[in-house]
Simulated scan of single mutants.
Amino acid sequence: MPEAILFTAIKVLGPVAKLLSPFVSPIRKYFEQPKVAVRLVFQHSGRRTHGMTQNNKFPPNGEAISIGDLANYNHLYELRWNFELILTNNSEITAYRLRFPEHEGIKVTIEPAFDYTFPLAPNARRVYTLTATIPYESTPAEADKVVKEGPASVLRIEYENIKGRRYYTDFYAKEKDETKKNEYGVVE
């Protein structure tokens, strides 16, 4: 008896599904999300000084500062990190209009620059050079500590599906578990 009901349901629903297919497909395309995975491979880092800042308490009357005391004074630095940025489309849906939104307090340059008009095909991969720089005022020891920690904990890449719906990948650089480094979502 249950088999007869199942066969009857298939006979009835099969033609209905075929009739609805042209209407469901465009709706489904609106919600299909590309999954662009991000990976950063550290290359090198460092700091460049632009001299001591005026925010120091210098000796009175223009007395000379000994070289040994320079480490106790604040300097203005440009802290820099270089990475290999690898983007992989881990889905069967093409990612369009890739962009790299600004990250507060960090200047990021990507070489070659993102080509907004060039989509990332399913299962395709692109490799870029990412350089992050921040101005930083501190003692040399404090600047070295920040350089060692890295520039940011979260990096965001945004992209669209074929219908123009915006999505993002947040990459958590300091996450130890590789499976949790990428988080996907919809741009609101």
Rank of each mutant, 00 (worst) to 15 (best):
K35E: 11
A37G: 13
A37H: 04
R39F: 09
L40R: 14
L40G: 10
V41W: 02
V41A: 12
F42C: 07
H44V: 08
S45W: 02
G46I: 08
G46W: 06
R48H: 09
R48G: 10
G51R: 06
M52L: 14
T53M: 07
T53C: 07
K57L: 11
F58P: 04
P60Y: 03
N61Q: 11
E63C: 00
E63A: 10
A64G: 00
I67D: 13
D69R: 09
L70T: 12
L70E: 13
N72W: 00
Y73H: 05
N74H: 03
L76F: 03
Y77R: 04
Y77S: 02
Y77H: 06
Y77A: 03
E78F: 01
E78T: 15
L79P: 08
R80F: 10
R80C: 07
W81C: 06
F83I: 08
L87W: 08
N89L: 03
N90M: 12
N90Y: 01
E92L: 10
E92P: 00
E92H: 09
E92R: 09
I93M: 02
A95L: 04
A95G: 04
A95T: 08
R97A: 13
R97M: 06
L98P: 02
L98T: 03
R99K: 15
P101R: 13
E102G: 15
H103P: 05
H103G: 05
E104S: 15
G105L: 14
I106Y: 14
I106H: 03
K107M: 14
K107R: 14
V108Q: 11
T109R: 13
T109D: 14
I110S: 03
I110F: 04
I110M: 11
I110A: 08
I110P: 08
E111M: 12
E111I: 12
E111S: 15
P112E: 13
P112G: 11
A113S: 11
F114D: 05
D115Q: 05
Y116D: 10
F118V: 09
F118Q: 14
L120C: 08
L120T: 02
A121D: 06
P122Q: 03
P122Y: 02
N123M: 10
